[in-house]
């Protein structure tokens, strides 16, 4: 949980594998890296066992690069595909039992605040739609109602991809899947609406076919969660296996879905806007000066 753990123990440098040496010498720790520099520095994420062409992996890769202070970040996950990649990163990963990830993250975020005080330590929950909207639903909602200050990211592939294609609460109505042959009978859950009602300070929906937008959204969510309140990002990360999308058409599908039902939307409270503009210099949220039109005409 500091730059101290990203260095060689004395005398061990020559025995460390190449990947570790690259991470210490050319990793993003303690530097500011952006998605436009991708391919030029050693990434925190390493090789992982996710399927070829998985959009969820692309989102996780972009998300991890976007963390404002990766050396001060802990990720929390649960069962599902996502944890296979998130756990292969050079930042601490906590595995919650199925569904309790937001409870684990609550305690973790509180403990880190007690231990480190004003020094920001970010907790980011990254779980799938099943782990969050179905099995971890009550824990997630309660953490938002309690205003626990950490970021929750849903990797929404609209199916239980890890267990063979059962429908989840986030599956669209009528979708026919391998383990849901009659089609889903009810609507996709409105987790964005619930996040707003439960009091999240920042809520966004995003699709990974725009890397710079993903970066901007993740940065804002993590920064707001440091002091203002809980933040929620819902990302469409298609399952190309269960929805039979050819791997080279995954980004085409992402664009289609973005235009159809996953348009980029951002909800941010006034407190969060003020915090971002005053503390981190976000010009887009500065209060607008009074315009001449506001002056009554003589």
């Amino acid at each position: 949980m500091s730059l101290d753990y990203v260095k060689f123990s004395t005398g061990f440098e020559k025995f460390m594998p190449k990947e570790y040496r690259d991470m210490v010498e050319h990793g993003p720790f303690g530097k500011k890296v952006t998605v436009s520099q991708m391919g030029s520095f050693k990434e925190i994420l390493e090789e992982h066992p996710m399927c070829a062409g998985c959009a969820m992996t692309l989102f996780i890769r972009l998300a991890i690069i976007s963390f404002p202070n990766p050396e001060d970040t802990i990720t929390v996950g649960t069962a599902g595909c996502g944890r296979l990649a998130i756990s292969q990163a050079a930042i601490p990963f906590v595995y919650g039992n199925y569904g309790d990830q937001n409870g684990v993250a609550s305690g973790l975020a509180r403990g880190l605040r007690l231990r480190f005080g004003d020094k920001p330590k970010d907790v980011v929950v990254m779980v799938g739609d099943g782990g969050m909207a179905d099995i971890g639903f009550s824990g997630t909602l309660h953490s938002w109602f309690r205003k626990e200050k950490f970021t929750t990211i849903m990797l929404d592939n609209e199916v239980y991809g890890n267990t063979g294609g059962q429908e989840s609460g986030m599956t669209n109505r009528g979708a026919v899947l391998k383990m849901a042959p009659l089609g889903k009978k009810f609507e996709k859950m409105d987790m964005v609406g619930m996040a707003k009602i439960a009091g999240c300070a920042y809520v966004a929906t995003v699709v990974p076919n725009n890397p710079r937008r993903v970066e901007s959204v993740i940065k804002k969510a993590v920064l707001i969660a440091r002091e203002v309140g809980p933040t929620y990002i819902q990302a469409y990360t298609s399952c190309n296996i269960e929805y039979a999308i050819p791997t080279d058409k995954v980004m085409e599908d992402a664009k289609t879905v973005e235009d159809d039902r996953y348009k980029f939307a951002e909800y941010i409270t006034d407190d969060a806007k003020q915090y971002l503009s005053e503390r981190y210099g976000y010009k887009e949220f500065l209060p607008k000066p009074a315009t001449a039109a506001a002056i009554p005409q003589a």
């Binding site: 436009s36 391919g39 050693k42 990434e43 090789e47 992982h48 070829a52 890769r61 890397p211």
Partner: peptide, 9 residues
């Protein structure tokens, strides 16, 4: 392409 590959590095 560096930004859209699902595999790191």
């Amino acid at each position: 392409c560096t930004q859209f590959c699902p595999e790191a590095n």
